[in-house]
Design a protein around this nucleic acid. Structure first.
Lengths: 168, 168
DNA sequence: TACTGATTAGTCAAAACTGACTATTTACGG
DNA sequence: CCGTAAATAGTCAGTTTTGACTAATCAGTA
């Protein structure tokens, strides 16, 4: 339900159309979730069917009409509930990179070191990028800071693993 | 392709049937990935169709026959390639909990604190559990240690956020 | 003004994933 | 040795997600 929470939360700020929602999420919230365009429309349709939001065709200038979504009172209630649930729960993170790690011992340490060095550099680049992100308004800043925390931990972890691979 | 990598890596150690794979993954590797039973069979069938593994009906005692999967030479090649790709890349983690955080400022700080305290406690429990996990053989131990690192960072982060919510 | 490439807006068929179910076998107390 | 619960092994129908497409408009430029 995180994606629903996100869409409802954005529509709460002001009415938007599907493409706009998708753009915002992939520009400013790429670190929390990825939401492909067809998925966004799929979820919006489903939420409209449940009565959480309404769809309205809207014409603007000579542009082709587009569907603008608006939160209903019921949607607001659902948002409030989902927000509290999300904040109170711990959502276990899955690390796709761990699957490689689980088999790293079948490679010779030299090659493993070289491959993981590559991963380390990618993390460092990501961290530099996150540091350079201009401060966001309101609580979005928290999300950026969380990302920085996580990337820092990741970097420290990879450095330790690399250390161990060199020693042996 | 992480799930494929995982299944190939396990089949590399010894031939297994689908249920066995699923059991192992959900017992020992729940922190890396979750793989529902139907998904496991789906992926196994797909990999068999591609020639990465073979399926063999096998009878054991009076038990109903079951499909045992075995890595092919081609599958071994794919495994080697996927392993190197996985180790060299950084796989961005998505944190579902960040979506709640992004809207935390619409609640009053008192309630936000109380909800996040709940999340904090869940993380602490998870961390205690990870610490109590008996050491695994080989590189699986790395995965457990990574999990501990991540949970520790998460706990520190939540404590800081809680701190900030109390001060204001 | 005609052409090109980028941006906006959305669709569709196919792929991936899962909850809920079936069916057999084993373990075990009474 | 019977009944019941747990473990084993897998299937199926439905939901969710996505890559690849369409099609209109806009911005710049030659």
């Amino acid at each position: 339900m995180e994606r629903e929470l996100l869409l409802l939360g954005l529509l709460r700020q002001h009415n938007m159309h599907g493409y706009e929602l998708h753009e915002f999420i992939n520009r400013d919230l790429a670190s929390c979730t990825d939401l492909k365009k067809p998925t966004a429309y799929y979820l919006l349709d489903k939420m409209a069917a449940k009565g959480w939001i309404t769809e309205t065709e809207e014409q603007e200038g000579s542009r082709p009409p587009r569907r603008v979504y608006q939160l209903t009172a019921e949607g607001e209630g659902v948002f409030q509930r989902l927000l509290r649930e999300n904040l109170a729960e711990y959502h276990q993170a899955r690390f796709a990179g761990d699957i490689g790690l689980a088999f790293v011992d079948i490679l010779d340490p030299e090659e493993a070191r070289s491959l993981l060095q590559n991963r380390r550099d990618a993390v460092a680049r990501e961290l530099a990028l996150a540091h350079r992100t201009p401060p966001h308004r309101g609580a979005l800043q928290l999300v950026v800071e969380h990302q920085v925390r996580h990337l820092t931990a990741e970097l420290g972890w990879l450095d330790e693993v690399l250390q161990r691979l060199s020693v042996r």
